[in-house]
Design a protein around this nucleic acid. Sequence first.
DNA 1: CTAAATACGACTAAAAAAGACGTATTTAAA
DNA 2: TTTAAATACGTCTTTTTTAGTCGTATTTAG
Lengths: 164, 164
Amino acid sequence: MNKINRKVEYALIALKHMRAKAPGELTAAKEISTLYGCPFDVMSRVLQALGKRGLVRSEQGAHGGYQISRDLAKVSFYELNEMLLGPVAVAKCLHEEAGEPSCEMRGKCNIVSPVTTLNRKLIEFYRGLSLAELLDPRHASVQSRIPTNIAQAAADAAAVAEQR
Amino acid sequence: MNKINRKVEYALIALKHMRAKAPGELTAAKEISTLYGCPFDVMSRVLQALGKRGLVRSEQGAHGGYQISRDLAKVSFYELNEMLLGPVAVAKCLHEEAGEPSCEMRGKCNIVSPVTTLNRKLIEFYRGLSLAELLDPRHASVQSRIPTNIAQAAADAAAVAEQR
DNA sequence: CTAAATACGACTAAAAAAGACGTATTTAAA
DNA sequence: TTTAAATACGTCTTTTTTAGTCGTATTTAG
C-alpha cells in the first residue's frame, strides 16, 4: 500500500550507488542493473530522465556512464518525483469539473476538498525531505533539511517541537 | 502522480460530510454518493470497512446509516490508510528475497535500501497527521497533531523550527 | 572497425485500482 | 405482514496504471 513508484525506487538505488564513488567517476547503467538485479532498460530510462533534468551528467560512448551533478542535500524528494513522474498528485477535487485548471476561490472556499489539503501537506513533506537525508539516514537532519517557503510548515514543526 | 487512493479520498469526503452533522445524526451512503457524485457501491464499501474498524458506527434497516464514532483529532491518516488498504507500503528492498518477512540485520546493515528509509519517514508523516487536521485546515495544528513515539520525528521537527 | 555505452520510440504484459452486479439481511413504517 | 430503504458482502469485469521488452540509432574509446 502507498507503494513507492518503481522508477523512483530505482533512482534512489542508483543515486546511492553513485554517491559512494569517487568524484568524476562514471557508472554505467548496466553496472547498477546487474548489481541490484533490476531490468537494465528501466534503470537506463530512469538515468536518462535524470540526465535530462540535470540531476546526473551523462557521458556517451564506450566507457561512458553517469555521475551525480548536483548536491543531493539540496535536491528534494519532491523534485525527484517530479523529474520521473511529473508534478505530484493534486487529485482533482470532486467539487470541481474535470478540466477546470485552477480556481481562484481556492483558499477561501469552505468546501475545499480534504484531498486538496492532503496533497498540499504531502507536497510540503516531500519538499522538506532531501535526497541526502534519504540516502544516508545518519546524515544529520539539520543540514539536509530543505526549508520550505510555506509558513504553515514552520508553524507545524514548532507545534511538534513544543510537544516534547 | 503519487495519486491518493480513491477509497481514502471517498473516506475523507464522507467523514467531512458526517462531521458537519449534529451528534447522533445518521448519514446514508446514498446521501453522500449522490451529493458528491461518486459511485454508491464504492462509497458503501468504504463506509462498511470503516464500520468494521470502529471509526464509524452503522445502523441497519430503514432510516439507517453511519455516524462517526471516534474523535478525529485522535485518529491519524496512517490509521485511515491502514483501515482501507492494509499496512502502509514497506516496499520490498531489492536486496532481500521476496517472502522473507523481516531481517534482523535491518538497522545495522549498511546496504539498507533508501526505500526503507523513505517508507519509515512516510509512515512517520502519516502517523503525525490527524484526520481532524486534514478535514479542517483551520483546526489548529497544535491540538490535532498526534505525537509519534519515534525520537527522530521530534529531532527533525526541532531542526525545522530552528531554521526560522 | 568494433565493442560498449547512452538515447529513445513504440509496443506488450502484468498488476492494481475502480467500479458493477447480484443477493442477503435488517428495520421502520404503512 | 408487507414493503421500502437501508446496510452487508461475495464475485466479477473493466479500466487504468505501472512495469518491462524490443528494436534501432548514435556516440566514442581503443
